[in-house]
């Protein structure tokens, strides 16, 4: 297994020459015989927020699964902070500072809020620190700490999932459809948190259907289609790309 070093002190003012936090080179992945990723090239600069957009079935979720180690790429290379990590297990990657808020419920419904956060300490940080930080960030969770996670509302579950993902003090945070099934105002407040987290120097790769929320917090954006990244750039660049793609350059 590839060893990954944990970048504990995220260097906010990393020089331009520092390796990007995440670099994917020609990544392929398949479910059985059906190839879902067909050569993805993507770079997330250190400390940046990248919004990954694309239609259903474009391969966004699969890409996150590959980056988080849940799925092994059939081809291609994944570099984290300049280190080659293809084939590392998801738990090793989590402990190394790559954490994910997965699509849907990223919590254990039959455990209490506190037990969920307790398990977050498998990432290597002390549970007291995790709890203090999580309750400070999301006071609502403190009120509900003895409740089963499954009895929380959708937004609260997502808060818990986010708090847990932050428990590892991640260098790279992967967010998959944070907004799914949530009311717009709740989504907005979740993304306010995401913006705060980004300000603290955490690099974030966000896959989102509510493109508006994701683009609001993003430094860069990328568009996936048919298992490839077909466009990348800064939000306003992407804006013109998207505009051209969809409006035929007339808008």
């Amino acid at each position: 297994m590839t060893q990954v070093e944990h970048d504990h002190n995220h260097n906010h003012a990393a020089p331009r020459s520092a390796p990007p936090i995440l670099e994917l080179i020609n990544v392929h992945a398949a479910y059985g015989r059906i190839e879902v990723l067909r050569g993805v090239d993507l770079t997330v600069p250190r400390g940046a927020v990248l919004a990954l957009l694309g239609a259903n079935g474009a391969g966004k979720t699969t890409l996150l699964r590959v980056i988080s180690g849940l799925m092994e790429p059939t081809e291609g290379d994944i570099h984290l902070g300049g280190m080659h990590v293809s084939g590392a297990s998801p738990d090793a990657l989590t402990r190394a500072g790559v954490t994910m808020v997965p699509e849907g419920r990223g919590v254990f419904p039959n455990l209490t809020v506190e037990e969920n956060l307790w398990l977050g300490s498998y990432s290597g940080r002390h549970v007291d620190k995790i709890l203090t930080e999580a309750y400070h960030r999301f006071p609502r969770l403190k009120e509900r700490r003895r409740q089963l996670a499954g009895s929380l509302s959708g937004g609260e579950q997502q808060m818990l999932s986010l708090a847990r993902a932050l428990a590892a003090d991640p260098a790279l945070l992967l967010l998959d459809e944070l907004s799914m099934g949530l009311a717009p105002l709740i989504v907005e407040s979740l993304y306010d948190r995401v913006a705060e987290i980004a300000e603290q120097g955490v690099s974030i790769l966000v896959v989102e259907q509510f493109a508006s929320s994701a683009l609001r917090v993003a430094d860069y954006a990328a568009v996936m289609h048919g298992g490839r990244v077909v466009a990348t750039g800064e939000p306003d660049e992407i804006e013109s790309v998207l505009t051209e793609l969809y409006f035929g350059g007339t808008a």
């Binding site: 297990s89 738990d91 989590t94 254990f108 398990l119 990432s123 290597g124 847990r164």
Partner: peptide, 11 residues
């Protein structure tokens, strides 16, 4: 409940 999620927790 979910072994995969447990791995994402770092266990």
């Amino acid at each position: 409940d979910n072994r995969e999620l447990l791995q994402l927790f770092g266990a």
